[in-house]
Design a protein around this nucleic acid. Sequence first.
RNA 1: GCCCCCAUCGUCUAUCGGCUAGGACACGGGCUUUUCAUGCCUGUAAGAGGAGUUCGAUUCUCCUUGGGGGUGCCA
Length: 441
Amino acid sequence: MAENIRVRFAPSPTGKVHIGNIRAAIFNWLYARHVGGTFLLRVEDTDLERSTPEAIEALLDCMRWLRLDWDGEILYQTSQRAHHLEVAEELLRKGLAYKENKGGQGECVIFRMPKEGVIEYDDLVKGHMKKKAKDTQDFVIVRSDGSPVFHLANVLDDITQGVTHIIRGDDHVENTFKHIMLFRALGAPVPRYAHLPMIVNAAGKPYSKRDGSAFVGEFREQGYLPDALFNYLALLGWAPGDDRELMTRDEMVQAFDFAKCKASPARFDMRKLTWMNGEYIARQPRPAFEAEFDARLDRAGLPRTPLNGHRDALLDQIQPRTKTYADLPANCAWFFAETYPFDDKAVAKRLHAPGTPDLLDQAAAALGPLPDFSPQTTEATITALAESHAAKLALYVHPIRVAVTGRAEGPGLFETLWLLGRERTLARLRDTAAKLREGTL
RNA sequence: GCCCCCAUCGUCUAUCGGCUAGGACACGGGCUUUUCAUGCCUGUAAGAGGAGUUCGAUUCUCCUUGGGGGUGCCA
């Protein structure tokens, strides 16, 4: 029965949530919502050093940011310690585990694995899996310092929470054989397993901090939208089967299926994520975009009020061409501050041709006396100017843009001039021409 | 070393024996009556190799090669 399906996300809070980890959370969530089951959260906080209240809050914050809403109360693993140890005693009593002074570190409790036969299970994504008992080894379930080991705690908590489907990373496949024996020893039903392929870097190695952003917080910081990150991560190792890529949550929930999950590792491609993020930003409701826009302006120390009004018009121009929020301040500085930075590459490419200062002066002279400064008028004026010099419009457009904005990309030039207004346009053209003549640019 | 898993364009993927191998990102070209971007059109680009099964293999089987995971008193 669908409503009886219970899955869980069981991270250890370390302060930062790795994308590989959150991807497992996403698949758990997707599956739970697809079948109308329960998505549980368990915090494996047994590492007291790292599992600080701040680390736990960071984890929950990350879950909320991605709208991975969990069902019911959070289970904190440390609260189960007494139970874990009781069960270890029980296994000892039943002869399913034994004590040993391994390596002279004091007595630990070791779980007995079968010595013959095979352990097998059907993995929802990897298919039929089996391992010969002789290829497995007994393993420690309680350390000599009296603390329960991951395998014990993890399995017992899954029993406690009534988990029916365990969806986790590929790196746990070997553990699965141990866990299955533990479930059996405890007389608990063995859950179904789904092992997700790992996310790897461009070189095919496990994706780590060395490869760029590896933690959810970093993507957030860099201006990625949670829905975009969610969508992209969902598509790493899963595809709906048709050609859909940009999908809403509901569409993903509806289409999700382990049968469509790949068993091979997937490479993380930042370029595609960035493209997808741009698509999401372009589709954002204006108030949401504006709120983030303002926040980025504030942090960059730029005023929210533009030099020349026309804030909405700028937003109209900027929103569809924003890839990540992090780019925003640099892309708009010219619009909000009297002094704006010049992009070196843009300057080198568009302003260093001989005669450029004269060209900018010509433009200023032509634009100066205009009765109005609408895009139509300025375009007609610059077009006429270019024609009078038997030159292409582009010859004027590019240097003018860099001169007044400091950048090679941005809104259409004539919209830009209008956004800036006559005074500043003229001042900037002359100012840039002067700097070029002085050789200070 | 041993055990397990994986293998389609550079990348993410579709294909569940019939393929002129489709889509997306990225890249190149073109158009939007000579601006950035968008949009649209378009191009380059893939079935690791070898056997077998079959009328027919990218699809099924085996081997090789390559990659990944595991092999802790880490999780």
